[in-house]
Computed example of a mutant assay.
Amino acid sequence: MTYELYYWDGIQGRGEFVRLALEEAGADYVDVARGDRGTPKMMDYIHGKHGYDMPFAPPFLKDGDMIVSHVANILHYLGPKLDLVPKDEKSRIFAHALQLTITDFVAEVHDTHHPISTADYYEDQKREAKARSKAFLKHRVPKFMGYFERIIAANPAKSGHTVGDALSYVDLSLFQIAEGLAYAFPRAMKNFDKDYPLVAELRDVVAKRPNIEAYLKSKRRLAFNESGIFRHYPDLDEDPA
């Protein structure tokens, strides 16, 4: 059965973490909002026109009569189905915890350009965004990326992956994080490969996966832009500390 992915058209955003998993697995899926009247169809679910199990916001996934919302929850659901997580329960729960950590980081990325309110334009909160970005680059990137560097190093399988001895959805998400940071903060991330060599190596391994490489070259992979999570505003970038 074809998976239906619901997310805003025109941006990678949070939906990209799910797309990467579906693309890597070669899963049959449709990006609903990119099709005819796709956005109204998506909003019908959010407004409860299809029943009680309405999602709060996109992304959400429809698999038959199952509606699964929130990126980490979607990937926790898809992981075993797409063979993108180890089979044992301990590893699956730990992978979910790592994905939730990525969820926290994505929220902090978003807040670099919208620290006050999503209802206001970036231009209305530039001073606050500058201060938030400075703290983010100095403290939060090292904290999160340093953590994932240690996770890869401590993996008992010594596989270069975050969980187990093979690629997981967490690896795919970490690839997206690394790519997004490079786009949003090219000056600040100048030393990324030196500071986080294991994360950088994993990023490169993911990029060379046949299905991912084909996806990145396709029209399905939208470019980063200033409407998504990762936005490049030169005023927010700075030289490495």
Score class of each variant (00 low, 15 high):
Asp63Ala: 06
Asp63Glu: 03
Asp65Arg: 15
Met66Arg: 13
Ile67Gly: 05
Val68Pro: 11
Val68His: 09
Ser69His: 10
Ala72Gly: 10
Ala72Ser: 14
Asn73Lys: 12
Asn73Gln: 08
His76Glu: 04
Gly79Arg: 04
Pro80Val: 00
Leu82Val: 03
Leu82Met: 07
Asp83Pro: 11
Leu84Val: 01
Pro86Met: 00
Pro86Val: 00
Pro86Lys: 00
Pro86Leu: 00
Pro86Glu: 00
Lys87Gly: 09
Lys87Val: 07
Asp88Val: 00
Glu89Ala: 11
Lys90Gln: 13
Ser91Trp: 15
Arg92Tyr: 15
Arg92Lys: 12
Ile93Thr: 12
Phe94His: 10
Phe94Lys: 10
Ala95Gln: 06
Ala95Asp: 07
Ala95Phe: 04
Ala95Leu: 03
Gln99Leu: 13
Thr101Asp: 13
Phe105Arg: 13
Phe105Ile: 07
Val106Ala: 04
Val109Pro: 02
His110Met: 09
His110Val: 15
Asp111Val: 03
Asp111Asn: 09
Thr112His: 00
Thr112Cys: 10
Thr112Asp: 06
His114Tyr: 10
His114Asp: 06
His114Val: 12
His114Gly: 05
Pro115Arg: 14
Pro115Tyr: 12
Pro115Gln: 15
Ile116Thr: 15
Thr118Leu: 06
Thr118Ser: 05
Ala119Cys: 03
Ala119Glu: 15
Asp120Glu: 05
Tyr121Ile: 01
Tyr121Phe: 06
Tyr122Ile: 11
Tyr122Asn: 04
Glu123Arg: 09
Gln125Glu: 14
Lys126Gln: 13
Lys126Val: 11
Arg127Tyr: 00
Arg127Gln: 12
Arg127Pro: 00
Glu128Gly: 02
Glu128Phe: 07
Lys130Glu: 12
Ala135Lys: 15
Phe136His: 08
Leu137Glu: 10
Lys138Ser: 11
Lys138Ile: 14
Lys138Phe: 08
His139Tyr: 02
His139Gln: 12
His139Cys: 02
Arg140Glu: 12
Arg140Phe: 02
Val141Tyr: 01
